[in-house]
Amino acid sequence: MKDFTIFWGCTIQTRFPFLEKSTRMVLDGFDLPYRDVDGFTCCPEKSLVNNIDHGLWVLTAARNIALLDKAGVDLVSPCTGCVSNLATVNGELHSDNKEKIKVNSILKEIGLEFKGKNKLRHLVPFFHDEVGIPAIKNKIVKPFHGMRIALHYGCHMIRPSHALKNDDPLDPKKFDNLIRAMGAESVQYMTKLLCCGQGLDRVDQHENALHFARLKLKELKSLKIDAMALCCPSCYLQFDNNQFLMEKEGEKFGIPILYFTELLGLAMGHKPEDLGVDSHRVEATDFLEKWQRLNGEFARTDELNRQLEEGFGIAQH
């Protein structure tokens, strides 16, 4: 596997450093060849920078990508927004030579050149395609058998597909496959692909953001799921923080929000507190208790099966 760097992005490092912790723990657990690279800035955030100045959006992203060219590493990110933005600019510059020349004439001044030769991938498709389901299954010691988990892909993990090219943009499968590889049921639901709506919280429309969070949380509550899984800091903010705010005002959902890396880390045998699961605003206590209990029950069943098989073995002789 080619060396890669992790593009953490602003939100994880500023607001949710525990998500960096669980990501590093699972990467280390698989002994993957990653290293930190100095010099990244904001990806930059499309809905903010591109809306105001397209040229600067392209230039800033191109500079981040040029750092990869210089270091000779691929990029993997646990943030959907970062990957989507970088991949979109990468695609734009590959198809617009005039713009590429313009961008490079500026990057030259700081000793960089945009080539865009390295892969830009989100952590979920990276685990699915590069690490692979069999290798993941091999690492799992405490599966989520019997647990009902509802996935939230996050729009920018899969769209725009012309730039990301990593899954079906309207019927994605890879995250589902990974959750199933960990032993859980991936619960299918009506609003599965609905945008989280967090963007509205960044344009002075907090009530509308809550409205979007509610749409999904209400459906999931009615389906009695054990947890929602996602892998985007913005979606995490929407469903953990905004759910907490609504619960404080009396609306009850009780849906723990688990990051892909936290679930994988738990299944690999790490303690919840080491992974930072205790830093969540919506507590995951019920989820963890049920999982521990079911694991105990399944372990007893496995042991019983083993004894029975042994017994039959003896009986045959």
Binding site: R15, K21, L67
Partner: peptide, 24 residues
Amino acid sequence: SRLGEPAAPARKKLGLPEAAKSGA
């Protein structure tokens, strides 16, 4: 050049390495 800076005290508490340098 960013939308926030790495939370240094929280990183220390979590046992995370020092954050990579920014490109500011």
